[in-house]
Design a protein around this nucleic acid. Structure first.
Lengths: 138, 138
DNA sequence: CCGCGAGATATGAAAAGTCATATATTGACC
DNA sequence: GGTCAATATATGACTTTTCATATCTCGCGG
């Protein structure tokens, strides 16, 4: 079967979305196996090593979610004992609990390992790719 | 304020997701202005120029959605008069209606224009970037 | 032929996300 | 000090997505 090259096949935004999706698939499967949803992982990864905590708005922006989505995600994560919220001025500072720190550390370790495999696969090109992505990400 | 570089800041999957999100933001805003949801756009773009139509499963894979999500999205799109479905063996072939063809063509034109701006911004690097992304996407 | 497993899509109940807007807190101005 | 606009988060009604599973077809072995 031979389809002529169509627009979407070479469209930059589609390529980015596809690459992101494909690259993440393996790790996302690991997360699912551990019963951790992707948005939860993103919050954990963002909070990992951020000693002071992060506000809800910053979390939403970093995790590429909308603010109400983040508020509700944090409700669930708080209920699971992964994070706590502390009012600070008009913001709300989100912090990992002890359990959250532990889980985050484990998952970050897994993520590092997974990334290493990916980077090895595209050996030389990795730094240039990351630089480009950073530029696109702004 | 000075945060030490944390894992997530340089994590390939995060960079990919961020780049994809940032690059798409502008066009997604255009879509929203026209009242077109992103998943609808993806289906239209995938069907655009695919004369023979595409099966539900192929659509789901191409649009990076799950199959039940696609089935229900197609329900809505069919209700809006954008697509029709025709049983073909055990598959279901999805085709654009006249209205769907028109809308798809308009949006693809907008997407091309939007992409041109992006590519111009990262002038020389674009072909190499696309090649890398294609490789990652597999 | 007929039953049966595999492939492809649909569906139902529950979870998550979205949009608009309410609530809370601060800082500035009079 | 009280009012008001701006910033930050929460909430409610509604839509979309997800997970599990049902349904529908085809091809095959007996």
């Amino acid at each position: 079967m031979q389809t002529e090259p169509r627009f979407v096949q070479d469209y930059l935004l589609a390529l980015l979305a596809r690459a992101s999706h494909a690259a993440s698939a393996g790790f996302h499967a690991q997360l699912k196996a551990r019963g951790v949803a992707v948005p939860v992982w993103r919050v954990l990864a963002t909070l990992e090593g951020a000693g002071e905590g992060v506000t809800v708005g910053e979390l939403a922006a970093t995790c590429l979610m909308q603010q109400p989505t983040m508020s509700k995600l944090l409700d669930r994560m708080a209920a699971e004992g992964l994070v706590t919220r502390r009012r600070e001025g008009r913001s709300m500072r989100v912090l990992l609990t002890l359990g959250g720190v532990t889980l985050a550390a484990e998952l970050v370790a897994e993520a590092r390992a997974h990334e290493a495999v990916l980077l090895a696969r595209h050996a030389g090109a990795a730094p240039a790719l990351k630089a480009l992505l950073r530029e696109i990400a702004g």
